[in-house]
Design a protein around this nucleic acid. Sequence first.
DNA 1: CCGTAAGTTCACGAGGTTTTGAACACCTAT
DNA 2: ATAGGTGTTCAAAACCTCGTGAACTTACGG
Lengths: 179, 179
Amino acid sequence: MKGYTYRTGDSEPSTHLPLWEALVTDSVGDVIEFWGFKRNHGRVWALLYIRREPMNARQIQEDLELSKGAVSMISRDLEQWNVVSRVRHPGSSAWHFVAEVDFMEMITHVLQEREGELIRRVSTDLKDAEKLARESKEVEQETLDRIKRMRTLAGLMQQALDIFMKTARLDVSDTRDLL
Amino acid sequence: MKGYTYRTGDSEPSTHLPLWEALVTDSVGDVIEFWGFKRNHGRVWALLYIRREPMNARQIQEDLELSKGAVSMISRDLEQWNVVSRVRHPGSSAWHFVAEVDFMEMITHVLQEREGELIRRVSTDLKDAEKLARESKEVEQETLDRIKRMRTLAGLMQQALDIFMKTARLDVSDTRDLL
DNA sequence: CCGTAAGTTCACGAGGTTTTGAACACCTAT
DNA sequence: ATAGGTGTTCAAAACCTCGTGAACTTACGG
């Protein structure tokens, strides 16, 4: 099972960040990790989101206690997913980052892909399995039925996930207006 | 009876199981893994499900090429989740396992718990964060709003997941009647 | 009871993923 | 052009999770 289970005991949140900021960034980190992203994707986005002004890589690195390389890679990811954008800040030669507000978009988007890929593969494999089982006599009807049942189940799963993602996105854009 | 089979190349599914069975068990393994369980949870359950008759640990171990210990632990988990039950088989001193049909139940159940735990923690952390931020002046209103927004977002997430799980369960029990 | 087979537990290691940091490449301002 | 700060890459390190198998415990049959 993935990492969303626990945070180590007392979990002293990052040292020199105000406690409340640490709580926010870590929370978002945990949630995002639940969805199969890296914890630090969430932490970086959250930091940018509550700071509300462009930050350069160096500040992020210090505040979240990450390495140079990590910040570079994480922010590239976030940028690619359009939840963070990179801007020039007057009076500085460094890039600065700002948070976009719709990160639910990102979650649903990436989930969409991952899930699609999975379901596609499973569906064809099960179809093959059914065909093979049917050819090799000796397999009872009830067994064939069970394979078929699993196939419809895969379909239902996809459907359900789609619904989930649609409502999620809907709910969040509602929220966005709200602010 | 050493294994002479040595297949290079792509994705050779477990060797001595009929190909179609391997396809089925591996597929279920992949799906279940997506949901944050172990791959072998899915494989064991699927094997029992298609075989349709009680199997003892030894058979499972051989068919899926697992270790003694693994089979023991995996089947304990499955049993705890009520997707497999342990029965006495006449004429044998060993326990035998059979698959229950509703494993969507299990997914939703366990997800329910894990997700609940997570959301609960995140909610209180964000509540604390908001309180702290408010106390330490210097924090602008807009920032407070953003924290609040994240809180409602956590709530929405929970809600969405609930909906998803309900529909999933519903769809599946439909399917169950269907057989 | 005893002997044997079945079942459980757990320290360890293999395998996989994330982070690090040093080397390298790229800008920008002078 | 070039110096110095910025940004990226990637091999190695740290980390985490799972499966293994030997040691142990339990249960059954005789």
